[in-house]
Design a protein around this nucleic acid. Structure first.
Length: 434
RNA sequence: GUGAAAGUAGCUCAGUUGGUAAGAGCACUGGAUUGUGGAUCCAGGGGUCGCGGGUUCGAAUCCCGUCUUUCACCCCA
């Protein structure tokens, strides 16, 4: 009876695993060099925890279960609630700022489609306890640091940056009621996806006043920071929000990544909990969904029963990234090749236990060594196997071993061979000679 | 949850208005090659044509259902 893989999951055969590790190792390496420390939590949590941040609708998109004690649990669809829980538990003893990263395996019971599966990996970085937008800039810098390292240039991708705070003060200044903001965010977030007239129509339905609609459209289409003051009043609050956006770009310029960044008032993010700088990374060409997104969230720790400490972070899934890298031909280019120090072969009739003994001795000294299971194969076949494994050197056990306890060492790159005494082979070897 | 397209070997695919049509390339295994690798040549294994039903003398091919995949919508943490 054949059992197929579960909908929306992936099998990672060795070549797929190599790609996955390459991506994840890059995430981890870049996190560490940007000063982030790794953390992780359980793969399932109380169902309740995911409702705090995201509400009840989200429950339908969770894999939930009940344990034998009747506890309502769910596989984690994101790790930020876990982060909030963990930080709150030890908040008073953790040195600030908290700069943590994680690469959790996440689960969402959504219908799979391009760049979206039911099980995936996501790189998360967060800075907790810094109000200054310098922290937002550093999160963006770290994101770019990775994307740049894997070969993506400002011609390939753009970080589109805006501010929820700026949007909020703007909307309030033109008379939008506080309780309408949230539903308006959801609509504004779709601007780039909807046709222009459809968007305008939906906006008019929500706002009714034609003049207000025009003001919002003008603001949303703004992609130049110097133009912002023309659109907002010069009251303190608004000017402060505007200055903060300017400041982010100043920091990013100082950090040398301004080429990757642009202001785009159309970036809103669907989620309610963002309160400050928000950003998404998009491919310049193509219709691909956002590669990653993030922003500042001021209230999350408090919502999870902790102190009102501000935080900012970023999440990047592996699915969309992999699609983009394939399109750009950047995946596999820099993948590490198979590595093998020694292949231990034998000339027909001379194998026996010596082959396994040599391999075991090499392994015990820290070298990788492989022997063949084809006990009756000819040397030709065995060397072919050694080549397929990308072996650096090949040890051949043959007549010389019977005659003088000597082994043939063949350098697979140059083809050169030398005779070495069995006893001296291992004493000559030092790990550095790898 | 809604809609559209597609399912033939491990992978990528071909397959004539329905008529000896179960095929190719790659991959895999073996041989040429009993002491010398990456190449080449030859051979071999591998398929309930997603599954079930129907139409027909006859179905990979047409029809219905179903499952899966992909894509779009919803949603996007």
């Amino acid at each position: 009876m054949k059992i197929p893989p579960v909908k929306g999951t992936r099998d990672f055969y060795p070549p797929d695993m190599a790609r996955r590790n390459w991506i994840i190792d890059g995430w981890k390496r870049v996190s560490v060099r940007n000063g982030f420390e790794e953390y992780d939590g359980p793969i399932f949590e109380y169902l309740k925890m995911f409702q705090i941040k995201s509400g009840d609708e989200i429950v339908e998109q969770l894999f939930s279960l009940e344990d034998r004690g009747g506890r309502e649990l769910a596989l984690r669809p994101e790790i930020t609630p876990t982060l909030a829980r963990m930080v709150n538990q030890q908040i008073s003893s953790l040195p600030k700022p908290i700069k943590w990263f994680s690469v959790p395996r996440l689960f969402r019971a959504e219908r799979p489609q391009k760049g979206r599966l039911r099980e995936f990996f996501q790189w998360n970085i967060d800075i907790i306890g810094v109000d200054d937008v310098l922290a937002d800039a550093e999160v963006i810098l770290t994101t770019i640091d990775y994307l740049r390292e894997i070969g993506l240039t400002p011609k390939d991708i753009k970080v589109k940056i805006s501010s929820r705070k700026l949007l909020a003060v703007f909307l309030r200044s033109i008379g939008i009621a506080e309780n309408k903001l949230e539903s308006l965010y959801t609509l504004l977030d779709k601007k780039a996806k909807l046709p222009e007239d459809t968007f305008e129509k939906l906006l008019t339905e929500q706002v009714t006043n034609k003049e207000t609609v025009t003001k919002i459209l003008n603001f949303m289409n703004c992609n130049s920071i110097p133009d912002i003051p023309k659109l907002i009043t010069k009251e303190n609050k608004e000017f402060y929000a505007y200055k903060n956006v300017m400041l982010v770009f100043d920091y990013l310029e100082t950090m040398g990544v301004k080429d990757y960044c642009e202001f785009d008032a159309g970036i809103v993010r669907g989620l309610a909990y963002y309160t400050g700088v928000v950003f998404e990374v998009h491919a310049v060409e193509g219709e691909l969904r956002a590669i990653c997104g993030g922003g500042r969230y001021d209230n999350l720790l408090r919502d999870f029963g902790g102190p009102p400490i501000s935080a900012t972070g970023m999440g990047m899934g592996d699915c969309v990234l992999e699609i983009l890298l394939k399109e750009k031909g950047l995946l596999g280019k820099s993948l590490p090749k198979k590595e093998l120090d020694y292949f231990v072969a034998f000339a027909k009739g001379y194998g026996g236990g010596t082959v396994y003994k040599v391999a075991a001795e090499l392994r015990s000294r820290g070298f990788s060594a492989v022997f063949s299971y084809k006990t009756s194969a000819g040397l030709s076949k065995l060397l072919k196997e050694a080549s397929a494994l990308n072996a650096k050197k090949c040890v051949i056990v043959g007549q010389e071993y019977l005659d003088n306890k000597q082994l043939v060492i063949k350098d697979m790159a140059t083809g050169k061979q030398e005779l070495v005494n069995y006893d001296s082979l291992f004493t000559q070897l030092k790990p550095e000679s790898k």
